[in-house]
């Protein structure tokens, strides 16, 4: 077996919100076309770390980082990197489904329109491909011109994933993508993650241990801004090396 390429790599990464030291010397490499899960209690830095991967934290006053994050061996914080180009490469899906108050069609092609694509045929094809990838096509193909807000929560979240896919990213960041969904919708998203990893590198933050176990190949456990343990998911959930990891995943924290 050949070792997979590291899609994303953080080296000696520190992050600060003003005086608050949110991430402490993080070193981690995330494999291409695999799912990496970040787990840890609230405030441990996992979401902060996820957001550094497409520079979502740039807008926060007082936020700064030290160290490097490499995407395909290029430093994403280098001065010549355009953030909009980076976001095309690294898409994101949030905790609560956040469709725009527009039609389903306009939601999916939103990113493409911003890129200046006007050709109706190109947009239609991209819409169908993205909706098929998220297993939503059959459910919505007859109501593409209806408001996305009329969809169920689970459908809205899959629509948001389709919207992220439409601009052809290579990495998708997911911040607790199923925490607002019922078990059936959750299962659909998890199946989807499993499908998508054939073509995309997926990084997911989750509070649901079983979800991390089911969907991810590697798991990173964060605690108080530190990366405590990073290993194959199977190893993490059967024989973690660090006692803090064990206490967390077995619910014996603190």
């Amino acid at each position: 077996m050949t070792k997979k390429h590291n899609k994303l790599e953080a080296t000696n990464l520190d992050a600060f919100y003003g005086d608050f030291h949110a991430l402490k010397n993080i070193n981690v490499a995330m494999e291409e076309k695999a799912v990496t899960a970040f787990i840890g209690p609230s405030g441990c830095g996992k979401s902060t770390f996820l957001r550094t991967l497409n520079r979502m934290n740039d807008y926060i006053d007082g936020f700064r980082i030290q160290g490097q994050i490499l995407l395909d061996d290029r430093d994403i914080y280098a001065s010549n990197v355009r953030v909009d180009e980076l976001r095309k490469e690294v898409g994101m899906v949030f905790q609560k489904p956040n469709p725009f108050p527009k039609t389903i069609f306009e939601n999916v092609v939103y990113g493409l329109r911003i890129q200046g694509i006007k050709d109706k045929k190109v947009l239609q094809e991209a819409c169908e491909t993205s909706l098929r990838q998220t297993a939503l096509w059959e459910e919505v193909k007859d109501k593409l011109d209806k408001s996305a807000l009329a969809l169920s929560g689970g459908q809205q979240q899959r629509l948001c994933i389709a919207r992220a896919l439409a601009i052809s990213p290579s990495v998708i960041l997911m911040d607790e993508p199923t925490s607002a969904l019922d078990p059936i919708s959750t299962a659909k998203i998890e199946d989807l993650i499993h499908e998508l990893k054939q073509h995309y590198t997926i990084i997911i933050v989750t509070h649901n241990m079983q979800q991390a176990g089911r969907v991810s190949d590697h798991t990173a456990f964060f605690y108080m801004g530190e990366l405590v343990e990073y290993a194959k998911t199977k190893t993490m959930f059967t024989s973690p090396k660090n006692e803090r990891t064990q206490n967390y995943i077995t619910g014996r924290f603190g």
Partner: peptide
């Protein structure tokens, strides 16, 4: 309980 780690073992 879907046990993991030491609980599972």
């Amino acid at each position: 309980y879907t046990p993991v780690a030491v609980d599972l073992r």
